[in-house]
Design a protein around this nucleic acid. Structure first.
Lengths: 214, 214, 214, 214
DNA sequence: TATGAATGAGACTTCATTCAT
DNA sequence: AATGAATGAAGTCTCATTCAT
């Protein structure tokens, strides 16, 4: 009979991860020592190694943050069938996430994960998988919008999805460097751009239904 | 009287930097040792320290790649006064840079620089300065386009510039992770988006001049 | 009142020892961890310490293998009074023990015990005591043979006993390194040697016949 | 141009090895730390690793002591063609080596090497190779003696060689445990044994005179 | 009796940097 | 200017042992 339940062990693991994230956000993966993590989390060196095999284990666990991707996908799902609403919600959610100072540590660690992915195949695979998942969902959203006529018929679902994700990454980087940048202004520009790429053309061809894609 | 001219010293310095870049691209800043760099460049440990004070010196020298920013600014300048041409050239240059397999090492190192900027104030300042410089130029370009009526009068120069740069960063990341992504499709989508944000509105107010912003 | 009888405790102790012997034979004393022993024996870390105070305890318990010495002494005893039979049985028993693949683990652990005896006084004392015991018995055997006239009158009981034991040790080592060595040939040679040292000289009353091989 | 010659480097290496041998003789391979060796040899931790890759490197370098085997082979060679002299010299040399208190450290380390050979394939191969080399030489010596008629015609060269080596090993062990044992008495007994095994039988053409001690 | 999570001292090894030559 | 041997602080990880349950 195990002294601790699986849940208790997992919760301890999460505590250590949270401590590690704070350390990593502050000093970077490679300037953080196990001693730092251990000090921050309050466990002993030995205990750390009961929950993680190596330091790289911890890095891998934090470099890949599925939570934000999950949140984006959930947001699309919650928008039910309406692609315009879905897109709006998506952009809005990302904007608010960027503006959230509480998630600063997360951003700082995620960016280090990007660099780590260049030399750690496991992390690279996970990050790409994560990215692809979100990209797929956005592409489907565009696809649906095209079918309903809400989006321009020659919009490229994959292209748009990919560009949006690149934008998300680039903005995450900017927010991490310089939290004070004007998020509202940025959001407005993105909205214009997206509308430009997706809004059905006036006049002919693309049927009609105009006035405001979002 | 120095035995070597300044030029000779500088050339040796560049050789070491190039060797370091190869090492950093391969193994990352923190998994590259001075011994690695020295081996790759063919000089001795002692000699390395004649050209650089510390390892961080080398990192700082490579983390901040001014060359690409300079190239973008030059491109704008070469487009003379025409904002539409300038924007086209800008997007085109960036697209071709991304597709250039030869610049893979550069990209890999630059991305590591982004992470490094989070905990190295010198690097952070330089990267931000570099980014701002390009952002300024793009904003001026937009500004000029507004004045000439080629761009929509309510386009936000700063917002557009910032979004474009985020896009550039995000695409650089994607190219580093996965060089095989479809650059042409991406370029087409970006073009649509940019046109959407900048193209003067039909019909009303914004005067006219339609058909193709670029 | 103890819940378990002494016998039950002892049996558990023996199980752990057997597991430890397997581990030690495989990886050596110092590359075997308590965790290894515990895994091999199926008890828990805590339980291990109910039966042994320290790891050195287990090493000491296994480094000194009295069983083989006991067997040799028993063999001598079983030969009753006849020294020639006793010696024959002794050599035969040792030869068969060496050839017994089942006792490989035992041999491997015993040899490690020899090394351990060099820095662990307790083990050293036990090994020497063990060795002396057997040496004494062999010396007595020789002594008896001298008195009965079956062995040469100038045979040195102690010298022969000591040399035989050295031979036993050396052959044990060889068998542990290279189990495939030709035991029969070796046995034949030993027999010749022993006969040479102990057989009464031909011709006269154990005197003449010299010649000198060296 | 190297600052130090190869010879200087080798001499430094030997100094460290000598220090390591002292430590190993005192505390055993596994209870000796790199810090101990470094302290004993007077170099720094870092310097140690300029001369050896790992601690196991040092162990492997010392576990296999070729010098004694070489000395035995040299001794045989110096005896020129005479097998009887060769054997005498061999036994004598080994006896004097055993009695040499100065070589105590060497013995103590060699014995640890025996144990190490059980779990380190490199060491095992080297020790066996070393042993085989000496065994071969002794076997050849016996062979020659048979041809000259100095040794009994049914002497088994390989068997005798193997038994002698086992004896050497066993006596080395005994000397390491208990340096005070009576070397002269032991030598005398060995001489008798060897004579018994090799001396041509009296009487006839190496045939008769049986009797059978056993 | 039995468990197994927790501990922390200490082991091995690496590496940026120095400096005598 | 150039070399490369030397340094030692610091990092990661292991493991014998304890103890609350």
């Amino acid at each position: 009979m195990p002294r601790f339940t699986e849940a208790q062990k997992e919760s301890r693991r999460q505590e250590i991860l949270a401590a590690a994230q704070r350390c990593f956000a502050r000093n970077g993966f490679h300037n953080t020592t196990i001693a730092d993590i251990v000090r921050e989390s309050g466990v002993s060196q030995g205990t750390f190694y009961l929950y993680f095999e190596t330091k790289d284990d911890v890095i891998a666990a934090l470099a890949d943050d599925r939570s934000q991707g999950d949140a984006l996908i959930d947001a699309i799902a919650r928008a039910e069938a309406d692609p315009v609403v879905g897109l709006t919600v998506l952009l809005d959610l990302h904007g608010r996430t960027l503006a959230d100072a509480q998630r600063s540590d997360e951003r700082r660690v995620v960016i280090q994960g990007w660099a780590e992915a260049l030399r750690n195949e496991l992390i690279r695979r996970r990050l790409l998988a994560n990215t692809s998942r979100v990209q797929q969902e956005i592409a489907h959203l565009i696809e649906r919008g095209r079918r309903t006529g809400q989006f321009r018929s020659d919009a490229e679902p994959l292209g748009v999805a990919r560009v949006l994700i690149a934008l998300f990454h680039g903005l995450t980087l900017r927010a991490a460097w310089d939290g004070a940048f004007d998020a509202a202004l940025t959001a407005k520009t993105i909205e214009e751009m997206v509308r430009g790429a997706l809004q059905p053309r006036l006049g002919a061809a693309d049927s009609a239904g105009r006035e405001d894609t979002r």
